[in-house]
Design a protein around this nucleic acid. Structure first.
Length: 420
DNA sequence: AAATAGACATTCAAGAGCCC
DNA sequence: GGGCTCTTGAATGTCTATTT
């Protein structure tokens, strides 16, 4: 029990040495990430003072958002005095909330930043509501919500980006006897009725592990963002899929020439590492696009040629090359030749698609990777569409034939005037 | 049960080049 | 030069997953 102006609060405290290993990673990973790297993970965040950040996670009486949902366990972790200090504040009954909130306010007083998992939409707004109900105001802090950058990093490669999935896939940690989230509210309500706190022990462990995982995960993500090509969090370099994600991050929101260059290097390296086949096309696409934006059109064309060679399923690379030769390199014959190859690919795909289930070329395995509706419920797509294929017209046989005819016409004219 | 923010798709506007 | 067509990027809209 701890004294506050509003009464006593039941709380726990644990201190972890900074090199404490959680899963495959040390807890203090985040401290070794250069400050500017956090900006890469979340555009809104400018500077992020990780040394003074609090890692916050709640256990609540439910998922609803109204004033009726209480936070009965508040976990707060932070780096302090060479340790990772994890405190948990427990609500023994509704009437204790003023004291718990006062303790929380004191805990947050010296905080300069906030780290959560999905806290931007769940934990923090809920806490703000609880604070308001108790005539308190929480500080405004730069907020790093790990969920969103985690999705950018792993969504393409993992089936789920929940904290527990990432814990297993990224940290290599599997929990024994974890409490399923949906059981948590009931355990507290049971405690209210019976006074038996034993079933809550597992909830307190659950909350603690969530916070440790957030710290370890933040370290991983920070390193990956800061130095993707050389980082080896947990002793192993980034996978191709991770490099692809960082490369996209850097090239798509490029804040500087430097970012763009580094992003391009990541994308190129991703192709050299193990990249799951469905991701390869997206990587070629992102790389070609970034190179073009960087004014390196010839290199972009070289990448497209490699893509055309390695990806026989979709004519997109061939079409891009046709555009390149028509508009940039001004070589109409080459443009036509690439269009002819595109036609070949498109027709092969059409017949193949026809053979499979009469579904035309819109069957998922043949759809280009760029419409990543694959894996997404068919219910979301107009399966019965008289509206027809969603593929851009330029990738369809008709569009390609049109392109070829246009180029042929121009070539004929060119020959006529040049041969004179 | 709801806010968040990303992923994807579609639409719009502007600019460039071609054609006559 | 006016009318087309094509490309590109920005704006807009729809859908999804995550939290207890």
């Amino acid at each position: 029990p701890m004294a506050t102006p509003a009464g006593t609060v039941l709380h726990t405290e644990r201190l972890y040495p900074p090199d404490h290993i959680h899963g495959r990673l040390p807890l203090d990973g985040p401290l070794h990430v250069p400050g500017r790297a956090w900006r890469r993970l979340l555009p809104v965040v400018h500077g992020f003072p990780m040394e003074d950040a609090v890692f916050v996670d709640l256990e609540t009486t439910g998922l609803s958002r109204g004033a009726g949902t209480y936070a009965f366990l508040i976990g707060v972790g932070r780096f302090a005095e060479g340790r990772f200090r994890l405190r948990q504040f427990f609500l023994r009954d509704f009437h204790e909330e003023p004291a718990v909130m006062a303790a929380l306010a004191a805990e947050l007083e010296t905080a300069r930043a906030l780290v959560t998992f999905n806290g931007r939409s769940f934990d923090w707004p809920l806490l703000e509501t609880r604070a308001a109900m108790n005539r308190l105001r929480l500080p405004r802090l730069p907020h790093l919500d790990l969920l969103h950058p985690a999705r950018r990093l792993w969504q393409a490669a993992l089936p789920s980006c929940s904290l527990s999935s990432l814990e297993e896939a990224v940290l290599g940690l599997h929990r024994a006897d974890d409490v399923p989230g949906e059981e948590i509210p009931q355990r507290w309500f049971d405690f209210l009725e019976t006074g038996d706190a034993a079933p809550l022990a597992a909830v307190i462990v659950h909350n603690r592990l969530d916070i440790l995982s957030m710290a370890a995960l933040a370290g991983y993500m920070g390193q990956a963002a800061a130095s993707p090509l050389t980082a080896a969090p947990g002793g192993r370099p980034l996978t191709g899929a991770e490099l692809l994600a960082v490369g996209r991050l850097l090239t798509e929101n490029a804040r500087s020439e430097e970012d763009l260059r580094e992003g391009i290097a990541c994308l190129a390296e991703a192709l050299e590492r193990d990249l799951p086949a469905p991701l390869r096309r997206g990587c070629y696409q992102a790389l070609a696009r970034a190179l073009r934006r960087a004014g390196r059109a010839e290199e972009a064309a070289a990448v497209l040629k490699e893509a055309a060679r390695s990806d026989g399923a979709s004519p997109w690379a061939h079409i891009e090359l046709a555009k390149y030769y028509e508009h940039r390199a001004r070589d109409l014959a080459a443009a036509r030749d690439w269009s002819l190859e595109a036609l070949e690919v498109a027709m092969r795909r059409r017949t193949l698609g026809g053979l499979r289930a009469g579904q035309r070329a819109t069957s998922p395995e043949l759809r280009p990777a760029d419409d990543r509706g694959a894996g997404v419920p068919a219910s979301a797509r107009p399966a019965s569409g008289p509206a027809g294929s969603r593929r851009p017209r330029e990738l369809d046989v008709d569009g390609i034939v049109y392109r070829i005819r246009r180029l042929e016409r121009r070539l004929g004219r060119e020959r006529a005037s040049g041969g004179r």
